[in-house]
Write a protein that binds this DNA or RNA. Structure first.
Length: 268
DNA sequence: CTCCCGTCCTGTGGGC
DNA sequence: TGCCCACAGGACGGGA
């Protein structure tokens, strides 16, 4: 499940392989409504590769290629398809003989060409909250926002309070901030703890080149390294790194949620 | 408008 | 051993 650190790692890997190259006619290996208007970008040159939350944005000048990797999406830029790409969805030749390969086992990923900056057809991107590692993700605005929420984990996953947090880093940040995922409105101190925790877990995730829980690979097909540093995610029954209480897994916001029942008591 | 929940998809693993 | 089914989850969209 690529979240902000994984997508940022892929962006850094692919940037030098894509910028300056011209997209040719894409080949669709499968029919999927998640892959929209790709033919519109045939002939466009890739001018830049940026990231917004979990979305990759390839700047095509008048247009933009928007990529969301979903659960299992993988990208590679090379002449032949990586042998591990057993579910190829789109292969997109570039003008230097290399190919942008998109592989997606569970097909929750999105590939969409839009007019540059026109995100109206992509609701989550359109309403995306501030970049967590940017200056406009400030504690004051965040505290105001989380003072109104019904469930803090659902709010984090919505992308509207802050960009790029998914299930893994939500659990990690909530544990670091000592907040139960089912908590409602947060007070000022709690909000400041969570704000700092989000920055820390995402920053460390990038430094470790992402978390490979199962499927994630970087832009060169390599595993991430952050899984060795996870505090609670997928550590059910293992001791809390703070107090040694066994980590439990519960359902919050329709998602599996890992937490320490001592550090993250529901009432605190 | 917001909130909640079903839907999409396939590999995996537990139960029998 | 082999089969079946529940489960995993990001974003969307329909209904309340």
């Amino acid at each position: 499940m690529p979240e902000l650190p994984e997508v940022e790692t892929i962006r850094q890997d692919l940037l030098p392989l894509l910028v300056g190259k011209r997209l040719q006619t894409p080949f669709r290996h499968i029919v999927d409504p998640h892959h929209r208007n790709l033919e519109r970008a045939a002939g466009d040159r890739i001018l830049g590769l940026s990231r917004r939350g979990k979305y990759l944005l390839a700047d095509l000048g008048a247009r933009e290629l928007v990529i969301h990797l979903g659960m299992t999406g993988q990208l590679a830029v090379q002449a032949a398809p990586p042998p591990t790409f057993r579910h190829p969805c789109v292969s997109w030749p570039l003008d230097d003989g290399s190919v942008l390969w998109f592989n997606d086992q569970r097909r929750f990923g999105w590939l969409v060409v839009v007019d540059r900056g026109d995100h109206a057809s992509i609701p989550t991107l359109h309403r995306m909250g501030p970049e967590p590692l940017g200056a406009d993700f400030d504690p004051e605005s965040f505290a105001t926002a989380v003072a109104r929420v019904r469930g803090i984990k659902a709010a984090l996953l919505s992308q509207r309070l802050v960009a790029g947090v998914g299930n893994i880093y939500a659990d990690e940040a909530l544990h670091l901030a000592r907040l139960h995922p089912g908590r409602g409105a947060l007070d000022r101190h709690e909000a400041e703890r969570l704000h700092a925790a989000i920055r820390q877990v995402l920053g460390h995730g990038i430094l470790h080149r992402g978390t490979t829980f199962k499927d994630y690979r970087d832009g060169m097909g390599r595993y991430g390294g952050n899984q060795a540093f996870l505090r609670v995610f997928d550590r059910t029954g293992e001791p809390c790194p703070v107090c040694q209480t066994p980590i439990v897994k519960i359902r919050v916001a329709q998602r599996g949620s890992h937490l320490c029942p001592t550090c993250q008591s529901p009432g605190a």
